[in-house]
């Protein structure tokens, strides 16, 4: 279920990106005006779903667990050694 939702979201995001061109000035202004643009809300709902019957609260451990479960896999990214020396 989780996998299906994630791929559904990925497909939707890809479709929107593919159909549209560059960001409009309106979208840029929206970002600069502090949009709700982070994943933490998902963590909150994840944790609340797992605590039925108790008061909704999210701990640091909940966030770590949610992050581990939603891991996309090893990313393509620049290595530390390309930026910094020890």
């Amino acid at each position: 279920m989780r996998t299906h939702r994630r791929w559904g979201l990925a497909a939707l995001a890809a479709m929107v990106i593919g159909v549209s061109g560059c960001a409009t000035s309106e979208e840029w202004a929206t970002w600069k005006a502090h949009p709700t643009h982070f994943a933490s809300g998902d963590h909150a709902s994840f944790s609340m779903r797992n605590r039925e019957g108790s008061a909704a609260r999210v701990t640091r451990n909940d966030i770590t667990r949610a992050r581990d479960e939603a891991w996309w896999g090893k990313p393509i990214t620049v290595s530390q050694e390309q930026i910094l020396e020890r």
Binding site: A10, I17, S20, C22, A23, W28, H37
Partner: peptide, 23 residues
């Protein structure tokens, strides 16, 4: 070095890289 977790955002993805970096 930090990794900033964000929801996928089509409008953010459409920005030029300099604007994403500026943000």
């Amino acid at each position: 070095r930090i990794y900033i977790e964000q929801d996928p955002s089509p409008s953010f993805a459409r920005l030029p890289v300099e604007k994403r970096a500026s943000a």
